[in-house]
Nucleic acid binder design. Sequence first.
DNA 1: TCCTGGAGGTGAAACGTTTCAATTTCTCGG
DNA 2: CCGAGAAATTGAAACGTTTCACCTCCAGGA
Lengths: 339, 339
Amino acid sequence: MITIKDVAKHAGVSVSTVSYVLSGKRPISTATSQRVRHSIHELGFHPNAGARALASSRTNVLALVVPLRTDLNLPVIMEFVASIVTAARAHDYHVLLLTKESEADEVHRVTASARADAVIVMDVEARDPRLPALRELDVPVVLIGVPADPTGLSCVDLDFTASGARTVEHLAGLGHRSVGLIGSPPPVYERRTGYATRFRSGVTKSARKRGVTVHISPCAPTYAALSENLDSLLRPELGITGLVVHNEAVLADVVLELRRRNKRVPEDISVIALCPDPVAATQPVPLTSIAIPADEVGAIAVEMLMRGLAGEQPAEVRLLAPALTDRGSTVTAPSTADR
Amino acid sequence: MITIKDVAKHAGVSVSTVSYVLSGKRPISTATSQRVRHSIHELGFHPNAGARALASSRTNVLALVVPLRTDLNLPVIMEFVASIVTAARAHDYHVLLLTKESEADEVHRVTASARADAVIVMDVEARDPRLPALRELDVPVVLIGVPADPTGLSCVDLDFTASGARTVEHLAGLGHRSVGLIGSPPPVYERRTGYATRFRSGVTKSARKRGVTVHISPCAPTYAALSENLDSLLRPELGITGLVVHNEAVLADVVLELRRRNKRVPEDISVIALCPDPVAATQPVPLTSIAIPADEVGAIAVEMLMRGLAGEQPAEVRLLAPALTDRGSTVTAPSTADR
DNA sequence: TCCTGGAGGTGAAACGTTTCAATTTCTCGG
DNA sequence: CCGAGAAATTGAAACGTTTCACCTCCAGGA
């Protein structure tokens, strides 16, 4: 194995000089610097991560707690993970994968043994039992999602309340007076995973303000459940002309089922979804949607951690403003006469 | 921070004794051992991972290369990842997440800098460009999936050839004489990702042997593509009475579409799938299927690595025999008269 | 009785970096 | 041409483990 000593010898400088060339923490003359870099390259030197961690008490690793329950919204999770890994790499950080299922103190062990410098936790619930333990950690922590009481913790997420409001405003602006919300599965509301509830409250609040009637219908992630939901939402007496879908698992089926029932999108019914852009764009009918900006969230989470590691970043809750993309699945509401 | 020295002092023994208690590499009297353990617990000692790695040249970390392309079969990937993390934890190993997208030499950097002791690579293609680099690594490597030329590399995967054959034999055994295969998306065959091709060849070979006609129809992961596929497969002149589905993205839609076309499963047409058990079981009609045994594959992969790290495990290709679960979606073929 | 060998324990030398403090080498104003 | 300070470089002390080599006991075979 080839060490920093070998490099120093090869370049005719001291070990510390090589170290400073690598870290840039001290000015080094360009001549020396080039000679050293050349030697590094020539010898194929890779600094030993363990030794580095020991000497500098920095591992350049961040721990990522991922919910690996398969029932969950995989594509979104994957996007988050991908964006986090990418953002981390951009800061020369690696990602250690922890699963939510491992015992609660796994995160503690990982930081206590100096395996990671910081922690990102995905899929936090409103009153997540891990919260107290996370507050105890002496490393920076960023949550993706916002718990009921975020004091002392940094969080980043889409602003679901604003997103809910935005969907209704969009439809109201097009003249829709009665809309349906196909929501997350009931257990998600019960777990009070925060985001589902917040989205819903954004929807209802905005509906009240705009004088729109809204029919809320949580929906299990199965074809049968969806079918029932639509049965009930499409009863003519409700006069629903617009549909808000916050349930990725059944999103594809919604479009299929509407078609099956001879409801054309958007001529007969407008549909707007909350989901990642790629998903909205690849539906049989491209859907107007509010994006779940996984990339941005991941990048921001990493950014916050880096600031936390550097100077002192006070705990902060960052809510991202919703961005609506019109893909033509929402149009002016059919006039009452048409119905 | 609390170190092994503190523990030693607290327990009234030497540092090396504490280390031996922890590692069990030397006999220690139960009295001493208990005293030390007690001190460890009392002080909340967690050995510093970096120092450990440096002294022992073991990181207790394995690198996992995951394809994070969202187009891919997410649930399966997630299951693999979950099972690998679990298996790794059982061996006191942690998992460092690398994405396939990062440059090819990322794996090399990670091992060269002693960040990981071993590597698992998921989603290897038949002639994967990373293969030569992987062979060069001086750490144990296990591939999930089997490339065209696996010499020098350990691999583990479901036996797709046998699986393909098994589906046909199952249907043939029930009297079906003409079956359709809804295959992976065309690009998957073109990339020659191995498994798709092997499954198909298992199907055709077995079909020939059993005198069954098989109509192969690769299918893009969209509703439209599936619809066309079924249009063509269900032409009455083909007389297809059984369907093999090796395409998870459209699996749900297959069942829906058959229903829409008034083909009952299994009365009018038998359906058998290749997919993870949970997926097969949660379809509108539970499907007879051959499982993709993610758990087992993950556990075996980790097992192989551990043996590689310990003594010398020669490179080995492990193909798992297919397990078929009958969930009632396949029945005796309707007699010719019925059609 | 002596010797052998294993069990139980210890001190100190690695392991490969970073970084502090000290030293040498420059640059430039007076 | 000197001296002061800045710039560049260096030596050596950490960092917290593991593990080798050594030491002391004590049991039991000859």
